[in-house]
């Protein structure tokens, strides 16, 4: 498991709709802020990169210091962004794929308005479990 990891889902309107610190490192507020700043900045790169490949998993696309940003773009241009300091590429890919399935289940909920915040605690639990499993 990665010591630092921050997972965030950004809707197609560039709104973060889900965010969680999934690292094992003790949480520090300024670090969490920095993570968000890095992820926010990485959106610029994703925006260009997403159109250059047909793959959903964009691998690591950006880094700042020793923190790497890996991105997975769904067909609806929802972006799963993971900030991590580990290099477990396969694990991250699996993580993204499983989260994608969870996200699709969320989307299938008729009461969920696409693009709005994901508040399901079930989703949160599952994502954290996946993070423990793969990262």
């Amino acid at each position: 498991m990665a010591t630092t990891a921050c997972f965030i889902i950004v809707s197609r309107n560039d709104i973060p709709i889900y965010e969680s610190e999934v690292g094992t490192a003790t949480k520090r507020e300024d670090a969490a802020q920095l993570h968000q700043f890095i992820l926010h900045a990485a959106l610029d790169i994703v925006q260009d990169l997403a159109w250059t490949t047909s793959a959903m998993y964009l691998k690591s696309i950006d880094r700042f210091n020793d923190l790497v940003v890996s991105v997975y773009v769904t067909a609806g241009h929802t972006r799963f962004m993971l900030l991590h300091d580990s290099r477990n590429d396969d694990g991250i890919k699996s993580f993204f794929q499983e989260v994608h399935e969870l996200y699709i289940k969320i989307l299938l909920n008729p009461l969920y308005l696409p693009g709005s915040r994901i508040t399901s605690s079930h989703f949160d639990t599952k994502v954290r479990a996946l993070a423990r499993k793969y990262l």
Binding site: F37, H40, A41, D44
Partner: peptide, 16 residues
Amino acid sequence: LYGSLGYERKAAFFTR
């Protein structure tokens, strides 16, 4: 440079 590239968010990040 990020700014001139049109990467506003990147530019903002480094500006910060």
